[in-house]
Simulated assay, not measured.
Amino acid sequence: MSNSIQLNERASVFKSQMKQSRKQGLIPAVLYGRGKDTVAVEVNEKKVLDVLRKNPRAILQASFEAGVVPVLIQSIQRDTLTGKLIHIDFHHVNMNESMNSKVTIHFAGEAVGVKSGGVLQVEMYEVEVRCMPDKLPSTMEVDISGLAIGDQLLVSDLIFRDGVMVLSDPQAVMIQIKTVQEEAVETP
């Protein structure tokens, strides 16, 4: 577990009171999980933003009145105009069961094909995986410096450590290097 976070139980779910909490830097949230009661909580906005910056899919140690439990940030709601956090869903993680999650792929290096005039086209930035919670990678770095014009990287080309099963379509194209003419024909 890389991070801890403090959750405080919310006594009220009225809109006006949640708005007041947001002004104080607290974000309304819920904590739920299979076989667990749903609990209305609130969390410090700065702490959550720090976690999201470092690793948005980290398993967190959530402390609240009922004890300490491992959780994931399941979903985030943001204001469409300002981008500020409005609500967060925390999901209780059973550390003894495998889980599905997404892993962000970071492409490193400059492709040979781009240096020789090709255009880099990224199709996917993340893949879905299944693994035990303690084996969940935060990100995966993939070196693309060897890709020439016409080359592509498929999901099946990714190599994860033991215990991580990729659920995304193995034939899905993640990244490809196209010629400038191919790129010009595709744009309407």
Score class of each variant (00 low, 15 high):
71 V>S: 07
72 L>Q: 06
73 I>Y: 02
74 Q>M: 07
75 S>N: 13
77 Q>C: 09
77 Q>L: 12
77 Q>P: 06
79 D>E: 14
80 T>K: 10
82 T>F: 12
83 G>A: 08
84 K>I: 07
84 K>F: 10
84 K>M: 14
85 L>S: 09
85 L>E: 05
85 L>C: 10
86 I>D: 04
86 I>T: 08
86 I>Q: 12
87 H>N: 12
88 I>N: 00
88 I>Y: 01
88 I>D: 00
88 I>W: 00
89 D>L: 04
89 D>M: 06
89 D>W: 03
89 D>F: 02
90 F>H: 03
91 H>C: 10
92 H>F: 11
95 M>H: 09
96 N>L: 13
96 N>R: 12
96 N>A: 15
97 E>M: 14
98 S>P: 08
98 S>Q: 13
98 S>L: 05
99 M>Q: 05
99 M>L: 15
99 M>E: 05
100 N>R: 13
101 S>Y: 05
102 K>S: 13
103 V>C: 03
104 T>F: 09
104 T>V: 15
104 T>A: 09
105 I>N: 00
105 I>D: 00
106 H>R: 15
107 F>Y: 15
108 A>I: 12
108 A>W: 10
108 A>D: 13
109 G>V: 02
109 G>N: 06
110 E>R: 11
110 E>P: 01
111 A>M: 06
112 V>F: 10
113 G>N: 07
113 G>A: 10
113 G>H: 02
114 V>L: 09
114 V>R: 00
116 S>R: 14
116 S>P: 04
117 G>E: 08
117 G>Q: 11
118 G>L: 06
118 G>N: 03
118 G>H: 02
119 V>H: 04
119 V>T: 14
119 V>C: 11
120 L>C: 14
121 Q>M: 12
121 Q>S: 14
121 Q>C: 08
122 V>C: 14
123 E>S: 14
123 E>V: 05
123 E>D: 10
123 E>H: 15
124 M>Y: 08
125 Y>E: 13
126 E>C: 08
126 E>M: 07
127 V>N: 01
128 E>R: 06
129 V>A: 03
130 R>P: 02
130 R>V: 13
131 C>R: 00
131 C>K: 01
131 C>N: 02
131 C>T: 01
132 M>G: 05
132 M>C: 06
133 P>D: 08
133 P>T: 12
134 D>F: 12
134 D>L: 11
136 L>R: 01
137 P>C: 11
138 S>G: 15
138 S>W: 06
140 M>H: 07
140 M>Q: 12
140 M>D: 01
141 E>M: 12
142 V>T: 09
142 V>H: 02
142 V>C: 05
143 D>M: 09
144 I>E: 00
144 I>G: 00
144 I>R: 00
145 S>M: 06
145 S>T: 10
145 S>I: 06
146 G>D: 14
149 I>Y: 05
149 I>L: 08
149 I>A: 07
149 I>Q: 06
149 I>W: 04
150 G>Q: 06
150 G>L: 07
150 G>C: 09
151 D>T: 08
151 D>E: 12
152 Q>W: 04
152 Q>A: 11
152 Q>K: 15
153 L>V: 06
153 L>N: 03
153 L>I: 03
154 L>I: 09
154 L>W: 04
154 L>G: 03
157 D>H: 11
158 L>N: 06
159 I>E: 14
159 I>N: 10
160 F>E: 07
160 F>G: 03
160 F>H: 09
161 R>H: 09
162 D>P: 02
162 D>R: 10
163 G>M: 06
163 G>H: 09
163 G>K: 10
